[in-house]
């Protein structure tokens, strides 16, 4: 039994950076999982990806002015994310233009602008940091930020849950009984940006959407109700975080990608073996009920 302890528990007991990484990743999973479920149910998973890239120029502006400091990079990223979210939300809501084309153009531009900006001052290590994050280097400031974002997200979800469900399930109905339809859409986009900015520190601009989308799309194959889907997404996110950190520790893999890869494995398993996955859907049923 000793090896179990050495493999699974000891790394977290021995090293403070592993504890902080675990705490940060767990809070991110808790917060981003349910947001990801709604993102997926609104068919906005790719929008989330695009918005994660759109954060980069703002964060890069903070980096250019103040170096690798969490507060200016966060504020810059938040500002850039909110601008893009509002613009994209307004376009999809008030015009007939579909969101995908404009978002794709937007995120390509944003990503290249951000990379150019970081390269103007920083080294290629800084660039890697911005693109893929450093979950093993989370400091107290970053943990406080992630904690605040998680608390805000939980509270907002608790208050607006019914409206979020109604807005996904039957938007026209919500409009006929309440004025919350438009506000709740923007509140939700705000949550997405907040969680992406929080994930940016740990996972970088390319992967920060990973803990949001992958656990959610995996949970879709198992759960039949939104509530269970959200809980399952949180659980998958946390399990992927632990697994990724351990893989990174024992095999010297980059930590952020290892976490997202673990979530990717959970997704692959769900696609094949989930309750609504390939095996069950494709399996011929020799017997059927009378009614």
């Amino acid at each position: 039994m000793n090896w179990l302890f050495d493999v699974f528990i000891a790394p977290f007991l021995e090293f403070a950076f592993m504890q902080k990484a675990l705490l940060g990743a767990s809070m991110l999973s808790l917060s981003a999982g349910p947001v990801g479920v709604f993102l997926m149910l609104r068919r906005m998973s790719l929008t989330g990806d695009a918005m994660a890239h759109a954060i980069l120029p703002g964060a890069a502006a903070g980096f250019l002015m103040f170096g690798l400091e969490i507060v200016p990079m966060t504020i810059g990223g938040l500002a850039a994310g909110v601008v893009v979210a509002l613009a994209a939300g307004a376009v999809s809501r008030f015009t007939i233009q579909k969101e995908d084309a404009s978002m794709a153009a937007f995120y390509l531009i944003a990503l290249s602008v951000g990379v150019v900006m970081v390269s103007m001052r920083g080294s290629s290590i800084d660039l890697m940091h911005v693109l893929f994050g450093t979950v093993l280097a989370l400091n107290t400031d970053a943990l406080v930020l992630i904690g605040l974002v998680a608390a805000t997200t939980m509270l907002t979800l608790a208050v607006f849950w019914r409206a979020l469900v109604a807005e996904c399930l039957d938007p026209l109905f919500l409009r006929s009984v309440s004025r919350l339809g438009s506000p709740v859409h923007f509140i939700f986009l705000g949550l997405v940006v907040l969680n992406l900015v929080a994930g940016f520190q740990a996972l970088g601009t390319l992967l920060s959407v990973g803990l949001m989308v992958l656990p959610a799309v995996s949970a879709r194959f198992w759960a039949r109700r939104v509530e269970t889907m959200a809980l399952l997404a949180v659980a998958i996110g946390m399990a992927s975080s632990i697994s990724g950190l351990l893989l990174s520790y024992h095999l010297s893999l980059p930590s952020g990608p290892a976490m997202i890869l673990s979530a990717g494995v959970a997704y692959a398993v769900s696609v094949v073996a989930g309750r609504r996955g390939l095996l069950i859907t494709l399996r011929p049923r020799p017997s059927h009920r009378t009614a």
Partner: peptide, 8 residues
């Protein structure tokens, strides 16, 4: 405009 694929 009910989203029939929504898990409800």
């Amino acid at each position: 405009e009910v989203d029939r694929s929504f898990p409800a």
